[in-house]
Design a protein around this nucleic acid. Structure first.
Length: 697
DNA sequence: AAAAAAC
C-alpha cells in the first residue's frame, strides 16, 4: 500500500448510513494543490494511522497487484461479454427522434425489446470499457475495492457534501433522555462471557441440547436485567406489544382470526413459540399464498423509546474508539433498536431484531460486531493471511457496499479490516485482500460461495455472522446459499438476524443456526407513528405514462419503482426524453453502471432514479422525499421496504402508488397487511392532485 | 411471477 497521505478534504461527511457517492477517495479529488479537495495521491480516508508495512504485507500487496495486472486483460472480456442485456454499449446508436412517439408506448406498450434499437443512453456515457479495473492506479489497500468512478464524475460530490446539513437530522428525532431511568448498564457488560474463544462459552449447538425454543420467548434470562423499566413480559400483559398492534384498524385481529389462529397464532397467544409454523395467508386461496404470505410476527421484547434516554453507546458496552467513531458518523447517542441489541450482541447472544426502515439497524449490529471481533483478537497481532472473524450477508451488492461504508470506519478505528465480497466485479482484488488477511467480510451470497468453493475464502474462524434483511434472505433462491454459507462458519458462531419486516419466515434459519436468540423490536414503531405519508392514485391505464411524466417533473429526489427491469429501463428513458434527467437501477445493468447510477442520485446529478426491487431494501439515499410506485408491489413487505427509502431517520416522506381501478381491492388487502392507511384518489393527467404530490402538498 | 445472487 502506498504511504498513506492525509486527505486534504478530511474525513467524509458524517453519516450513519453513508450515502452513495460518498466514496472513500479512490483517486485524487483534484489534481491541483490549489484546489479544494486536493489529494496528492492515493489515500484511505478512514481509520488509524498507518504503520510501516512488513515484508509479508508487501508480499501480499504485490501478489494482489500481480493478480490484478494479470487479470487486467482478461478482465476486459468481462465487459465484452456478449453484452447480454446490457443496455449499455453495443446498441447501434439511434437518435432520439427515431423513437416512436413516447405516448404510444406509454400505456400498454408491448415491451419493446430494448436490446437492439435503443439510442445511446446519454451523451456522457462513456464506453464503459475502463470500468472498475483498468485504469486504476495503486488501489491496493483492501476495503477499498469499490468500483471505479471516473474522474469526470467526482467534482459533484464535494458540492453536495458541503451543502448537506451534516447529518444532524439523524439525531433529531431521538427521544429526549432523562438520566434517571436507566438501570445499571454494567449488568450486561460486566458479565460478558469472554467471547474471545468464540463458541466456547456459548451453549452447545447439538440439537438435543438446544433448549426448546420456548425459552427465548418466555423467560429469556438476560432480558430481565435491563428490562426493569420495561413492560412486563408475561404474555397477557405485555402492554407494549398490544398497544402497538391494537390501535391499528382490523388487521391485527384480522390476522389473529385467520386459520392460523389455531396453529401458530394460538401458540403465539399461549406464549409458545413455534418457528415452524407460518401463519396462513390472509386468504385461503392457494394462489394467493405464494403471492403474499403474512407470517406471524415474532414475539419480541419491545424496547420503549424512552428506555434509551440518557444511555450512551459507551453505556451499552462499546469501547472508546468505537464510540468516538460513531459520533463522527453522526450517531451521538443510540437509537432504540441499537440500545436494545448492542448489549445482547456484546454478551454473545444470538439476536433477532426488527426495527423499521431507517431506524439505524446497521449500527445496531455493526458496532457490537466490531467490538466482539476486537475482544476476540485482543492482544493478538494482526497476522498476514488471517482468516475472517465476522461475516455480514446482504441481498444486494449495493447494500453490501453501503453496509461496508458504515462498518469500515468503525472497524478501522480499532485496527480491524473489512472487505467486500460480491459479484459483478473482478475477483482479483477481493482475493488479494483475503490473502493479506481481513477481519470482517461484507458481501452477497453468490460470490462468497464462489470463493469458498475455490478455496480462496475460509469462513471456519467466523465467530459472528449477520444476516441483514433476514426475512428476504430466507426466500426462495436465497435461503439455500445462506444456509450453506452459515454452515461454513465456526461451530457455535454467533448469529444475528435483522430486518424491518422480520417474521417467522426466518424460522428456517433460526431452527438450524440460532440458540436461544433474543428477539427485539421497538415499541410504538408502527406505521401510524411513521413519518411517511401514503397515497394511492387510481388512474386509467392509458394515462400512466403522462401522469408519471408529470409526477417526476419536480424538485427533490424521486425514486420510482417498477416491477421489471425492462420497464424500469423504459421509464428512465421516457423521462430523459422529455428532458428530465433520470437513470435506472436494475439487474440488467453491469455493476459499474449500477453503482454509477445510484451515485448520480445520491450526488444530486440526477433527481430521478427508476429502479426494480433491487433498490427496495436497505438502500439509503439522503433526502428522497417522494417514492413513486409505477407498478404496485405484490407483497406487503415489498411495499414497506420500498416506502422505507423515504422518511428515514425521522424525516418526512411521501409515497404514491399508481394503480388501475381493477387493482383496488387487491391493493386494499395489501395495505391491510402492511398496516398502512392510505387514501385513494382518482387522478387524470394535469389534475391538481398531481401538483400536490409533486410539491408535497 | 419478478427480482436478486457467481462465472
Amino acid at each position: 500500500m502506498p504511504k498513506n497521505k492525509k486527505p486534504a478534504g478530511g474525513r467524509p461527511a458524517k453519516n450513519f448510513e453513508p450515502r452513495y457517492g460518498e466514496k472513500k477517495a479512490h483517486k485524487p479529488g483534484s489534481k491541483s494543490p490549489g484546489h479544494r479537495g486536493y489529494r496528492p495521491t492515493e489515500e484511505t480516508t478512514t481509520g488509524a494511522p498507518k504503520t510501516r508495512w512488513t515484508a509479508t504485507q508487501r508480499a501480499g500487496r504485490d501478489e494482489a497487484r500481480g493478480i490484478r495486472s494479470h487479470s487486467e486483460r482478461p478482465a476486459r472480456s468481462f465487459d465484452d461479454r456478449p453484452a447480454r442485456r446490457e443496455y449499455t454499449n453495443d446498441r447501434p446508436a439511434r437518435s432520439y427522434d427515431d423513437r416512436p412517439v413516447r405516448r404510444e408506448f406509454g400505456g400498454d406498450r408491448p415491451t419493446r425489446s430494448y436490446s437492439n434499437d435503443r439510442p445511446q443512453r446519454s451523451s456522457d456515457e462513456r464506453p464503459a470499457r475502463r470500468e472498475y479495473n483498468s485504469d486504476r492506479p495503486a488501489r491496493r489497500e483492501y476495503g477499498n475495492d469499490r468500483p471505479q468512478r471516473s474522474n469526470d464524475e467526482r467534482p459533484a460530490r464535494r458540492e453536495y457534501n458541503s451543502v448537506r446539513p451534516a447529518r444532524r437530522e439523524y439525531g433529531n428525532d431521538r427521544p429526549q433522555r432523562s438520566n434517571d431511568e436507566r438501570p445499571a448498564r454494567r449488568e450486561y457488560t460486566n458479565d460478558r462471557p469472554a467471547r474471545r474463544e468464540y463458541g466456547n462459552d456459548r451453549p452447545q449447538r447439538s440439537n438435543d441440547e438446544r433448549p426448546a425454543r420456548r425459552e427465548y420467548t418466555n423467560d429469556r434470562p438476560a432480558r430481565r436485567e435491563y428490562g426493569n423499566d420495561r413492560p412486563q413480559r408475561s404474555n397477557d400483559e405485555r402492554p407494549a406489544r398490544r398497544e402497538y398492534t391494537n390501535d391499528r384498524p382490523a388487521r391485527r385481529d384480522d390476522r389473529d382470526r385467520r386459520p392460523a389462529a389455531s396453529g401458530a397464532a394460538a401458540g403465539h397467544a399461549a406464549g409458545r413459540s413455534n418457528w415452524n409454523e407460518k401463519a396462513a395467508p390472509a386468504r385461503s386461496a392457494a394462489h394467493e399464498q405464494h403471492v403474499d404470505v403474512v407470517h406471524e410476527r415474532l414475539q419480541a421484547d419491545a424496547i420503549q423509546a424512552t428506555d434509551v434516554d440518557g444511555v450512551s453507546f459507551g453505556d451499552l458496552g462499546l469501547g472508546e474508539n468505537i464510540v468516538r467513531t460513531l459520533a463522527d458518523l453522526g450517531a451521538a447517542a443510540p437509537f432504540a433498536i441499537q440500545a436494545a441489541t448492542i448489549p445482547e450482541i456484546i454478551a454473545g447472544r444470538d439476536v433477532l431484531a426488527r426495527g423499521r426502515t431507517g431506524s439505524g439497524k446497521t449500527i445496531a449490529f455493526g458496532a457490537p460486531l466490531v467490538e466482539n471481533v476486537l475482544k476476540a483478537g485482543a492482544g493478538k497481532k494482526r497476522e498476514f493471511g488471517r482468516k475472517p472473524k465476522a461475516l455480514i450477508l446482504a441481498p444486494t451488492r449495493e447494500l453490501a457496499l453501503q453496509i461496508d461504508r458504515t462498518i469500515q470506519p468503525i472497524a478501522r478505528s480499532v485496527g480491524l479490516f473489512t472487505t467486500q465480497i460480491y459479484g459483478g466485479v473482478p475477483q482479483a482484488r477481493q482475493v488479494g485482500a483475503l490473502k493479506k488477511g481481513v477481519d470482517i467480510i461484507i458481501g452477497t451470497p453468490g460470490r462468497i460461495q464462489d470463493l469458498i468453493n475455490q478455496r480462496k475464502l475460509d469462513l471456519s474462524e467466523v465467530m459472528v455472522a449477520v444476516i441483514d434483511e433476514a426475512d428476504h434472505m430466507c426466500e426462495l433462491g436465497f435461503l439455500e446459499p445462506v444456509q450453506e454459507i452459515l454452515r461454513e462458519t465456526a461451530d457455535g458462531s454467533q448469529k444475528l438476524l435483522f430486518s424491518a419486516t422480520l417474521d417467522r419466515e426466518v424460522s428456517s434459519l433460526v431452527d438450524e443456526f440460532l440458540v436461544e436468540p433474543a428477539v427485539h423490536e421497538v415499541a410504538g414503531e408502527d406505521q401510524a407513528s411513521s413519518t411517511i405519508d401514503h397515497q394511492i392514485l387510481v388512474i386509467e391505464h392509458r394515462d400512466k405514462a403522462e401522469i408519471l411524466d408529470q409526477l417526476v417533473d419536480r424538485e427533490g429526489k424521486t425514486l420510482v419503482f417498477a416491477r421489471t427491469r425492462a420497464y424500469a429501463e423504459m421509464l428512465a428513458e421516457q423521462f430523459a426524453d422529455i428532458g428530465i434527467p433520470a437513470v435506472s437501477l436494475h439487474g440488467d445493468l453491469n455493476q459499474a453502471r449500477r453503482t454509477r447510477n445510484l451515485e448520480r442520485l445520491t450526488s444530486g446529478r440526477v433527481n430521478v432514479l427508476v429502479a426494480t426491487d433491487v433498490a427496495a431494501r436497505g438502500i439509503h439515499v439522503d433526502d428522497i422525499d417522494l417514492v413513486i410506485q409505477a407498478d404496485a408491489p405484490d407483497e406487503y413487505k415489498t411495499y414497506l421496504h420500498r416506502s422505507g427509502r423515504t422518511g428515514r431517520a425521522g424525516k418526512t416522506g411521501r409515497v404514491v402508488t399508481l394503480i388501475t381501478r381493477q387493482r383496488q381491492r387487491k391493493m386494499t388487502e395489501m395495505l391491510e397487511r402492511a398496516e398502512i392507511e392510505a387514501p385513494y384518489v382518482n387522478v387524470r393527467p394535469g389534475d391538481d392532485m398531481i401538483n400536490a404530490v409533486r410539491r408535497g402538498h
